[in-house]
Nucleic acid binder design. Structure first.
Length: 489
RNA sequence: CGAGGUGUAGCGCAGUCCGGUUAGCGCAUCUGCUUUGGGAGCAGAGGGCCGCAGGUUCGAAUCCUGCCACCUCGACCA
């Protein structure tokens, strides 16, 4: 049992908070709502980022960078964007400080007031489309497939590490196309990348689908989402891909001359995933002993713990350990040899479990004599001995096995917590239990609002291809298909 | 932004009701010895503007007033 880690059954939110801190992922900062991502946590984010970046580039996207500050007037050009983000924007009003004429410290120089205030970007559609206007004249300039890795600020009143912070890191893709079909294709291509990334790398099963209109991104025609189910039965929106239609092209007057020699508005998509994915990763796999990481995203896939008492033992053990570290590294495995002499082995075992390292190998004199190594896998907590000559094959095999096991385990959990509700009473009971609930809905925002008021459940997404006629569980009106309800983060 | 709560050592807390020795405990830190295959034991040591500013009092962590910060719960959100 990890020292001082609250169990999930005792309090899931507390468990999460303590885990994030104790596993050295992140901590609160001096600025309310902003987090410090610590090196170990950032290493995981870097692995996610590198993989996503690779997938974007494989599908023809390029990276660029747009400014942090957005002129206030840009936001007012697109009415829905204002409505969506106005309540959570940080605003820059001055550009200079001065020594306090009445005392200690510095004050804002009143003479440095900006003529036009600047908004710290909550998302970059407006500044990007005001730029695309200059880049696009003819169909020959299309498509534009740009992504940027950036920080954004949304002034949150109730922050939680990784899940909801005032500043967060993300990528935002912004594409421009000649036709609606092309933009929709792009939107769905990215949704598929997100799904594959979540499932194949994070080992997190996700449910792709489209958001109902009242849950979509302001300014989008359609918002697609991947929804994941956390261990406490709550859903986490883990990525979104928007078909923006011509909303931003019209707001910023971005037109192109088509094949047919006609001026037409450009079609758009935008899409993003953020450091919130860290929250999904943690809340999907981890247990009461700490973090559990899928091998593909583990900063260290294998940790080596040397065990020795006397100095003559130490020399032999260390020589072997250093060689094993080199051999594993040469095979492309991320490995950590824990050489800390201040800490005892038991402490190290617990510490690396807390940090979620998939495979631990203990190396002691007894093992040397028996020509074997003691393996421990983090996901199942099994311990077993591996003959020396099999060590490389077993490590490589185990990493794949653990990756698969985590996904299958999470998928099984989701299946066991996915239900169908056919009456209002049934729906209420199932939502109270937690999990995904498939139910008929009459398609109106009014009904969705009432369901939310009474149960706190929202429509997470409308999955594709499950057409089935039925009656709305709340209003009893006609419904063309089931939608997925859950309580959400 | 509404409603509650909490600010005491790096972290977690007791003490505050009912004012009165040198403000205490656990973890962490430092020193020494013994330990080292599942978060070591013993002995010793260091560390505090008791959130901030006023007030009451011979005397304030403790009582009063104001401010600030953080946490939990609601409304909003990736």
């Amino acid at each position: 049992m990890a020292k001082g880690l609250t169990s999930r059954s005792e309090s899931f939110p507390e468990w999460y908070n303590e885990l994030v801190r104790k596993a050295d992922l992140a901590e609160n900062s001096a600025v309310r709502g902003c987090m410090v991502i610590k090196p170990y946590g950032f290493a995981i984010w870097e692995l996610m980022r590198d993989q996503l970046d690779k997938m974007f580039k494989e599908t023809g996207h390029v990276n660029a960078y747009f400014p942090l500050f957005i002129p206030k007037s840009y936001l007012s050009k697109e009415a829905q964007t204002v409505e969506g983000f106005a309540k959570e924007c940080a605003v820059v009003t001055h550009h200079r400080l001065m020594n306090n004429p009445h005392g200690e410290g510095v004050v804002v120089d009143p003479d440095s007031k900006l003529e036009e205030e600047l908004i710290v970007r909550p998302t970059s559609e407006t500044i990007i489309w005001s730029t695309y206007k200059n880049w696009i004249q003819s169909y020959r300039d299309l498509p534009i497939l740009i992504n940027q890795w950036a920080n954004v600020v949304r002034w949150e009143l109730r922050p939680r590490l990784f899940l909801r912070t005032a500043e967060f890191l993300w990528q935002e893709g912004h594409t421009a196309h000649a036709t609606a079909d092309e933009a929709i294709d792009e939107t769905l291509t990215i949704l598929d990348i997100y799904k594959r990334f979540a499932q194949d790398f994070m080992a997190v099963p996700v449910l792709p689908g489209v958001k109902p209109l009242h849950e979509k991104f302001p300014g989008a025609v359609d918002t697609y989402t991947i929804e994941a189910l956390m261990q406490d039965g709550k859903a986490l929106q883990s990525g979104t891909s928007h078909f923006l239609g011509q909303t931003f092209a019209k707001a910023f007057d971005v037109t192109f001359l088509s094949h047919e020699n006609k001026q037409e508005y450009v079609w758009a998509s935008s899409w993003g995933v953020s450091t919130r994915l860290m929250g999904a990763l943690i809340m999907t796999h981890s247990d009461d002993e700490g973090l559990v990481l899928p091998p593909l995203l583990a900063p260290f896939q294998v940790v080596l713990i040397p065990l020795y008492k006397k100095d003559d033992e130490k020399e032999k053990i260390m020589e072997f350990s250093i060689q094993l570290e080199k051999d594993l590294r040469a095979r492309g495995i991320r490995v950590k040899l824990d050489q800390d002499e201040q800490k005892r082995p038991g402490w190290k075992f617990a510490e690396w479990e807390l940090k979620g390292v998939p495979i631990r190998i203990a190396i002691g004199s007894r093992d040397m004599e028996n020509n074997q190594l003691e393996f421990a896998r983090r996901d199942t907590k099994e311990k077993f001995f591996v003959p020396m000559e099999e060590r490389f094959d077993r490590i490589e095999g185990l990493l794949k096995e653990i990756q698969d096991n985590l996904f299958n385990r999470a998928l099984k959990f989701r299946e066991e917590n996915t239900f169908q509700a056919n009456s209002w009473e049934e729906f209420q009971a199932l939502i109270e239990k937690g999990g995904f609930v498939y139910a008929h809905w009459d398609g109106t925002t009014e009904t969705a609002d009432k369901i939310k008021d009474e149960t706190k459940a929202t429509i997470r997404c409308i999955p594709e291809g499950i057409a089935e006629v039925g009656k709305c569980i709340y209003s009893g009106k006609e419904s063309g298909q089931r939608v997925v309800f859950a309580k959400a983060y």
